[in-house]
């Protein structure tokens, strides 16, 4: 499943594509919402690993505007619940992820991102 937590970790890996290759842009997506168990400790532990702007942009692209533009210092329950929903409950099941730099398209099918490259694209 391409949850936004995973999307936040994936960069284009085409040979020679080293700048502006993250985040990948969603296109033609079908999303499913699936409830996940709320785990504040996990969220707090994971926050330092997030690229915040990329997460907020991706969430907005998918129609969720609950996250603030800047990562807040005070982590109240409402914020953590919104973060939980964005990171773990929005599943991109179908669609395409495109690199802003080289325009390579990575399809998502049945919730699995296909990041395979052709021989000449492998670095």
């Amino acid at each position: 499943m391409v949850r936004l937590i995973t999307h936040n970790l994936l960069a284009c890996h085409v040979k020679g594509c080293n700048t502006n290759n993250f985040p990948l842009q969603f296109k033609d997506v079908q999303i499913e919402l699936r409830e996940a168990e709320f785990n504040p400790d996990f969220l707090k532990g994971f926050m330092p690993k997030l690229e915040w702007k990329a997460l907020v942009d991706a969430a907005r692209q998918l129609g969720d505007t609950t996250l603030p533009l800047e990562q807040p210092e005070m982590l109240d329950d409402e914020f953590l619940k919104n973060l939980h929903h964005v990171l773990l409950e929005i599943h991109v099941e179908e669609g395409v992820m495109t690199c802003s730099n080289c325009k390579h398209e990575y399809p998502v099918s049945n919730g699995i991102p296909n990041m395979l490259l052709a021989e000449h694209e492998i670095g």
């Binding site: 499943m1 937590i5 936040n8 970790l9 994936l10 890996h13 296909n114 990041m115 395979l116």
Partner: peptide, 27 residues
């Protein structure tokens, strides 16, 4: 991998790729 995770109540996010090359940048 995904279905085995679900069967055993573990959320796994599979990526169809060799090794881990799309992850080096961020991880």
């Amino acid at each position: 991998t995904r279905s085995t995770g679900a069967q055993n109540k573990v959320s796994i996010d599979p990526i169809n790729v060799g090794f881990a090359s799309p992850l080096y940048n961020r991880l």
